[in-house]
């Protein structure tokens, strides 16, 4: 995406804005997924207390760490897959049917 920064100024800055927005969207989406996943795994839904207890806090730390590992692992797998399919692009679900 960074390779688009060379043409005339007007389209390029519209592109920049769009790229920055998309990056922000992906961050938000990932944060929401992480939160949903780790609250589900680490915090029971009974809510007998309002504080995070020690076990829950430690669980959230480890859960977050593993979540990042899974994210990295999957992005590597998708890149390897894309490389194996050559420069044909896409190749996934609806985009690449």
């Amino acid at each position: 995406m960074s390779m688009f920064g060379f043409g005339k100024p007007q389209p390029s800055s519209a592109e920049k804005i769009a790229a920055a927005e998309q990056e922000m969207d992906l961050f938000t989406d990932m944060f929401n997924k992480l939160q949903q996943a780790c609250m589900k795994k680490c915090v029971p839904k009974e809510y007998r207390e309002g504080e995070l207890n020690k076990g829950e806090g430690v669980c959230i730390d480890r859960c977050s760490s593993k979540f990042f590992d899974v994210q990295l692992k999957i992005s590597e797998l998708l890149q390897a897959e894309a490389a194996a399919k050559g420069a044909t692009g896409g190749g996934f679900g609806i985009g690449g049917m």
Partner: peptide, 10 residues
Amino acid sequence: FMGMFSNLVG
């Protein structure tokens, strides 16, 4: 694609 990626991770 990003939506698919984040669903897959989740």
